[in-house]
Design a protein around this nucleic acid. Structure first.
Length: 424
RNA sequence: AGAGGAGUGGCAGAGUGGUCGAUUGCACUGGUCUUGAAAACCAGCGUACCGCGAGGUACCGGGGGUUCGAAUCCCUCCUCCUCUGCCA
């Protein structure tokens, strides 16, 4: 969430930023927020004064008792009881104000970075770069949902039987390809200096709030009501929440963590014919990279992460492009996001396989993730994360782009991990 | 899952109703001394909110309660340890 002090200091900038996102009622909401904060300060000051007086009385009563001045004790107790009642009311009011202030802050998204282009939807995203060539496929080339049937490597019907739509079963070389990709991505992350993490894939409510999935995306996560836990939609949640309520030292920065997890998304209401095959699933595998960085260095880090991700796609030999998301398409908690899209040759579609974002202090503020600088001051850190990479669409692109008459060729970098060069 | 015990500042560890935000040790930071280092000595050393400041307020696992006053008493939840049970 945004920092109230920043809102007070840069009111116009904040409002302009929210407008770039097409955030409805930006001005009114910010004004209301400022009023609430003023009220909060006033109430707090008042309460503090009352408590200070009550505390002084309590000490005085202690002294009276010590000296056996029972009448004074009774008198002062009575007086203090009144203060206490007043304090109770103020406290209640303060809590109410605090709560609605928090709700307001939860409701306000991050301010976009100046580089973020204006726009309302994905058509307004800016193509930053493009790399590679689409393979020359024969006329008999098939989309991946046909290929997986023909080669019997991924089975949606079986998934339907076991769980339901969007939970495919990977079989034989299909399963092995999954394992190879995860292994390849993790090894590359390790080479790039990331520490591998294996986090829990169920998280509690607090963690959900920490990285901003709650309350914004409540309905998008699978919820186990018995224990009030959520299945993670991305490894970002547990891996970033490791640093909830943590104060780091400047010398420990940047923190670089990576992890493989399955990811679970309900995708409520976003099902349709355009999401055939592996294009959209309820459960999928992903390797995520997360960095925690000094506020002045986070944009260098963002570039570094982007290069890492692009490197992976290049090594796999897939044609791709990089998009800078426009204000309207930007995630709630993100200040800037780049999407990497791979070209799926048979579908003739761009498929998003990675999204890398700088959240600046938005998550850190909720997480209370700070660092102690060399000046010994405590400040909020910047958090960043990116997919490196999400598997299903990469698999879709590999299957389609590498299909031949003899079978599906495996990209060279993967063969040490798969142990085979061809799915015949 | 049942019984018992415990949760205090970065760590260790005092404190069981009254100036306790908390003794002390270690660690850490600055200084003195030293050719340098170590040792010794001196000083500093949690977080948040309000205030220009002096200063005030809150926080001893979380939440609630008793009391003029709670780290200390009560209730509840969470976590950890020991034993029993169960289990991959």
């Amino acid at each position: 969430m945004l920092v109230v002090a920043d809102i007070l200091q840069h009111r116009e900038k904040v409002i302009d930023g929210l407008k770039k996102r097409n955030f409805a009622g930006a001005e009114q909401k910010i004004n209301k927020l400022i009023r609430l904060d003023t009220e909060r300060k006033e109430t707090q000051s008042h309460l503090d004064a009352v408590l200070a007086e009550a505390n002084a009385n309590a000490k005085e009563i202690g002294n009276f008792i010590k000296h056996g001045l029972t009448e004074q004790v009774a008198l002062l107790k009575e007086e203090t009881a009144a203060l206490k009642q007043q304090g109770g009311q103020l406290k209640e009011r303060l809590n109410t104000i605090r709560k609605s202030l928090k709700l307001f802050l939860y409701d306000i998204p991050n301010i976009p970075h100046p580089l973020v282009p204006p726009g309302t939807n994905e058509d307004d995203n800016e193509v930053v770069s493009e790399w590679g060539d689409a393979p020359a496929l024969s006329d008999s080339a098939l989309p991946h949902w046909e290929l997986i049937k023909n080669y019997d490597i991924i089975d949606f019907e079986l998934g339907n039987k076991l769980t339901g739509a969007g939970f495919p079963v990977y079989k034989g070389k299909g399963a092995r390809l999954q394992r190879a990709l995860i292994n390849f991505f993790l090894t590359e992350a390790e080479k790039a200096g990331y520490t591998e993490i294996q986090p829990p894939i169920l998280i509690n409510e607090e963690s959900g709030y920490g990285t901003g999935q709650l309350p914004d995306k409540e309905g998008q996560m699978y919820h186990t009501t018995e224990d009030n836990l959520y299945l993670i939609p991305t490894a970002e949640v547990p891996i970033t929440n490791i640093y909830r309520d943590v104060i780091l030292y400047e010398k420990d920065l940047p923190v670089k963590n990576a992890g493989y997890t399955p990811c679970f998304r309900r995708e409520a209401g976003s099902w349709g014919s355009h999401v055939r095959g592996l294009n959209r699933l309820h459960q999928f595998d992903k390797v995520e990279i997360v960095q925690i960085q000094h506020p002045e260095k986070s944009y260098e880090t963002l570039d570094e992460m982007r290069e890492h991700i692009e490197g992976l796609i290049r090594k796999l030999g897939l044609k791709y492009r990089v998009l800078r998301l426009c204000g309207g398409d930007l995630g709630f908690t993100s200040a800037i996001t780049y999407d990497m899209e791979v070209f799926s040759a048979a579908q003739k579609k761009w498929l998003e396989v990675s999204s890398v974002s700088n959240f600046e202090t938005y998550q850190a503020n909720r997480l209370k993730l700070r660092f102690k600088g060399t000046d010994n001051k405590t400040r909020l850190l910047h958090t960043l994360n990116g997919s490196a990479l999400a598997l299903p669409r990469i698999v879709a692109a590999i299957l389609e782009n590498y299909q031949t008459e003899e079978g599906i060729r495996i990209p060279e970098v993967l063969t040490p991990y798969t142990g085979f060069e061809m799915i015949p």
